[in-house]
């Protein structure tokens, strides 16, 4: 079972299948037909139905140079999601600095001073371009 998960294509297929099932159920609820013609759920449902046999074909395709998942990117994905989840509460400044410092020290194996300098520099650049020049209202600090 876990051996199968070592193949990224299997993981992708499982994820896609899960998404497809969700779309399938939702399109069922939307309805396939209205008085005037095809309903909003028809095309997505047909698409979902086509997707399953294709997934089966893909999982069976084999390559010589198939890749394996590595830890760093997966950790990074989790970090990015946590970052996005905290933004609405903490504003841009703190999470962004933390993210870049963590990124440079954990993944790029740089020392923390470099991380802090880099994050400070990047956030300052971002502020000049987006907030100062483009006047985008960006909540930098926590809302409270």
């Amino acid at each position: 079972m876990f051996r199968a998960l070592e193949r990224p294509v299997n993981v992708a297929a499982i994820l896609i299948a899960a998404v497809a099932v969700a779309f399938g159920i939702a399109s069922w609820r939307l309805g396939f037909w209205t008085d005037d013609g095809p309903g909003p759920g028809l095309l997505p449902f047909v698409t979902v139905c086509l997707l399953f046999p294709i997934l089966f074909l893909i999982v069976r395709e084999k390559f010589d140079d198939e890749e394996r998942f590595k830890a760093d990117p997966l950790v990074a994905i989790i970090m990015l999601c946590v970052y996005a989840a905290t933004l609405p509460y903490l504003g841009f400044l703190v999470p962004t600095v933390a993210l870049i410092v963590a990124w440079t020290t954990i993944f790029e194996r740089q020392n923390i001073v470099r991380g802090i300098v880099l994050s400070g520099f990047l956030v300052a650049c971002g502020w000049v371009i987006f907030v100062y020049l483009l006047r985008v209202p960006m909540p930098l600090l926590p809302v409270w």
Binding site: R7, P8, V9, V11, L15, I58, E66, E67, L80, C81
Partner: peptide, 19 residues
């Protein structure tokens, strides 16, 4: 922004799966 992160994760997985 959340969407960007999810799409990024998906982009990585798809790439590893040669999709």
């Amino acid at each position: 922004v959340s969407l960007l992160m999810i799409a990024g994760g998906a982009g990585y997985v798809l790439r590893k799966a040669a999709l």
